[in-house]
Simulated assay, not measured.
Amino acid sequence: MNYQDILTKASKGLKNLKGNVIDVVEVKKPPTLDYARHLAKIVSKLSPLVGNMIEYHVCVELNKLDWGEVGSWKRQDPGFPDTVFEGNINPAPGIEIKTWFPLATEITARFKDSINHFKQNQTYVALLAWLPEFIIYGKPKIIDVWVDTAWSLAKARDAHYHRPPDYLIFEPENTSERAANLQQSNTNGYKFQGDAKAFQEAEKIVAAWGKEGKRYSPSRSYQKKLRQLRGKYPYRLDTNYAKIDRIGHQGVENFKTHVLDSVIHQHSLREWSKLIKDEEWKTMDWIKNLM
């Protein structure tokens, strides 16, 4: 069994988690409609806690699969990826776990890690959508799972954001000689802040890079060009960079649409989301049916 075999088997196991109820925390059934209204507005605040519990749950469930004497999965907290396979396998397979509460505005998880780390496709990303069993109360329930390579997300992110000279992506500095907790692995995005004249000048510089000059590359030579550009013109660090919901990955977009169109308790999640955001609560009978 090689690392790709392990990741393929783990991916199938993760997808089988769909429908699992995680018995770690429970929101009690609201006794009144007024309390249900209040609960609907704040239940998303459970996301950080539940997300952490799901990461732990995934590692436990992966170790229930038969790995023989090859090795076992171990959770890293902190660390990337969240779950790694420890054994005599090289490179070590890993799975980064991201969670999504579909009634929120968007998938807020970020993916900033450099594509340089995924040249062998040894790391996958799993996105697990969850809700309370009864929309606003109950135990956390995994309603769907999406898995793909970390390389594909990094590739989509870089292609989506990098638009020199308007927007630049920078690779992390070489910090391999630092202690493990001080090493850098994240890319960052920078937005042009100069005036129109400066932008035209910057465009000429980028044009001089040649036909492939606007195509992103993590290579040292290309990164040097980007640093020179940033050194000559004003740029600001983009604090909204690399949200998974915005990187333009087709697989993520398809998964998001599928989840929001899923019917749970007689209505699609898209409809439930609109209801919960409705200040006037014109469809309280939906909530009554849950109670």
Rank of each mutant, 00 (worst) to 15 (best):
M1K: 12
I6K: 10
T8R: 15
K9P: 00
K12N: 13
N20A: 14
V24W: 01
P30R: 09
H38K: 15
G51H: 04
Y56T: 12
Y56C: 03
G68L: 11
G71Y: 15
K74P: 03
Q76L: 15
F80L: 05
V84A: 09
G87D: 07
G87I: 06
G87C: 09
E96C: 06
K98V: 03
T99I: 01
T105F: 01
E106D: 14
E106C: 09
N116K: 15
N116L: 15
K119W: 01
N121K: 09
Q122A: 12
Y124L: 15
L128R: 00
F134S: 04
Y137K: 06
Y137Q: 10
K141N: 05
I142M: 01
I143Y: 10
D148W: 05
T149V: 06
A150F: 00
S152W: 02
A156Q: 05
H160D: 03
Y161F: 14
P165Y: 05
E171C: 08
A179K: 10
A180Y: 13
N181K: 12
N186D: 14
K197C: 00
F199L: 14
V206G: 07
G213V: 07
K214T: 10
S217K: 11
S219Y: 12
Q223W: 05
N240S: 13
K243H: 13
I244Y: 14
H249R: 03
Q250M: 07
V252T: 15
S262W: 03
L269F: 14
E271P: 01
